[in-house]
Design a protein around this nucleic acid. Structure first.
Lengths: 200, 200
DNA sequence: ATTGTAAAAGAGCGATCGCTTGGATATCCA
DNA sequence: TGGATATCCAAGCGATCGCTCTTTTACAAT
């Protein structure tokens, strides 16, 4: 039935994702993409249809792999305080981990393409809603387990933490001193401990 | 002495700033700029030198006018709790104010151009440092006036608030539901009230 | 081995990019 | 008012943009 493809869709999508992540949408040319993906222009358009569709595929892959890897634990049925601590602590060290200053692809995509594509609004809203829901789930579990102090609902923190993380993503991409990111994360962690019942 | 200019540098820089703010750097063509500025290509390059230099001029104007207008009060010698409340409350309504979803130009510039221009790192670092210093100034004044509770230094909040605001900027540009922005700002305000001595 | 078929390869499409140039025009000084 | 001079204006520069075509090549089914 004809010649077989010499590339793997997942592999080349991953490479495109990394390039978009590093440079952004407009600053990445199709020539850059074909070079990095090891695929010819014809194959790129036969496989994905357009640069914009390739970008969407890269975004989808990012959410299914990177985002899921970072926040999936918060969405689990057993997620609680420990998972929140781990996530906030991890991104407190983003200045160390993210040495090449890629930040977060979803955050970068939101700020670069917000006004033009109406679907990007859906993307951003879904992205933030998922972050919000992830923290809300973990905090809700903690509350149900009686691990939060009486007055605290956790809803406020479920709104605060995503915003803090977005700020950390921006600062990481901007090359801000890692100590500033660490301080922001530590303060968020302190707010968390303030509502956790002692000894729970 | 030759013909006089038919445009005002401040006026055309303002127009360029608004266009960059709305669309970003790469998505704004020089044709778009000359149209919006009401200036010919020759005049644009005679006045600014390059698209990149015009962008820098727009950034400078943004910091001197918009950013200064929003955060200048926090940097004043008399700034205290009231100024912090006002700023956080204002951006809690950013979903209402920023109907055309421009977000923050400095935040957008940080995420779009971070990896390419090394000077953008300086820009982002300066931008965040100024935000940090502004909140630190107001919190320091409040502490010196004995308005913070004994244990609280305010340093943690001076790191937290800029991060929360950056998150709000991203969400506003992404078209996220205004209630989410409001909730993040309210929680930040709650953290502030938690360290303010009652009746002070 | 032969043949049908789909992918690889690379030249190149029209359009637009940032930017420049030459002649027309308007303003300032003497 | 008469040059001198700097700005305006439109046309268009080479380069690159996203994308497509034709030819060549290699795999799969017979």
């Amino acid at each position: 039935m004809g010649r077989a493809k010499t590339y793997d869709r997942d592999v080349v999508t991953e490479r495109a994702m990394l390039l978009f992540w590093e440079r952004g949408y407009h600053a990445t040319s199709t020539r850059d993409l074909t070079d990095a993906m090891g695929v010819n222009p014809y194959s790129l358009y036969a496989e994905f249809g357009s640069k914009e569709a390739l970008y969407a595929a890269a975004i989808d892959r990012y959410e299914a792999t990177v985002f899921q890897g970072h926040f999936g634990a918060l969405e689990a049925s057993g997620a609680s305080i420990e998972e929140i601590r781990a996530v906030l602590d991890f991104f407190g060290d983003m200045g160390i981990h993210d040495v090449d200053r890629r930040g977060c692809l979803l955050c970068n995509a939101t700020t670069e393409l917000a006004p033009s594509a109406e679907q990007s609004q859906l993307l951003s809203a879904r992205f933030v809603r998922r972050l919000n829901g992830a923290f809300g789930n973990a905090l809700g579990n903690a509350r149900a387990a009686g691990r939060l102090s009486d007055g605290a609902s956790g809803d406020g923190l479920a709104a605060l933490f995503p915003s803090v993380l977005l700020g950390i993503f921006v600062m990481a991409r901007g090359g801000v001193d890692g100590a500033v990111l660490r301080a922001a994360a530590d303060q968020a962690l302190a707010q968390l401990e303030a509502v956790v019942r002692v000894g729970a």
